[in-house]
Amino acid sequence: MTRDEVQALLPFLANGTLEGAEREEAEQMLDADPDLRAELHALQTVRATLRAEDPGHSPGEIGLARLMREVGKDGTARRPFWQSVHTWQSVAAALLVALLLQALFTGTDPGEDGYELAGADPEAGPAITVAIRPDTTEAAFRDLLLRAGAEIVGGPSALGLYELRPLNDVTIEEARRILETSDIVEDVTGSGD
């Protein structure tokens, strides 16, 4: 280690973070060099002076209250899937309005062939109702649906329940077995229960 290299490490000797072989080498050179020792002493003094300086009042509790306020209204924050239900509801409402407007302008009855609201089709086969853990992410729920071979046909209800239906090549028993063993599902009930 050269003298310049030791000089570059002096601030880290002064703050006590230099360790291992670097520290040993630096200390050996310091032992033999009174100028380096004087520099280290000066740096230790500068550090102590800086640390003793009062930075004044930090925002503290006021800053925390401001942060919590902003976080509370922050729509872009990372939030659990469950808490984004309002967004889903808004999208669903917008889609419904769009369908109604289309029906109005084309004179088509949404009940005719060509319109199919999955959740409103009582003849599409038995459904499964599930309660999902409140901290579930959208990704986890999506993964479960793919594994179970099921799709959402209704919900979330006011109680947060989802109505699922197995896809064409999956039986309700198969889907239900996978749903019941999932960590993110709190409760499963079938239409026949």
């Binding site: 100028d35 004087a38 520099e39 002493h41 000066a42 740096l43 003094t45 002076t49 800086l50």
Partner: peptide, 11 residues
């Protein structure tokens, strides 16, 4: 070095 030490004590 001594001057540094003296000045270093003054914030």
């Amino acid at each position: 070095a001594e001057a540094c030490l003296i000045a270093g004590q003054e914030a």
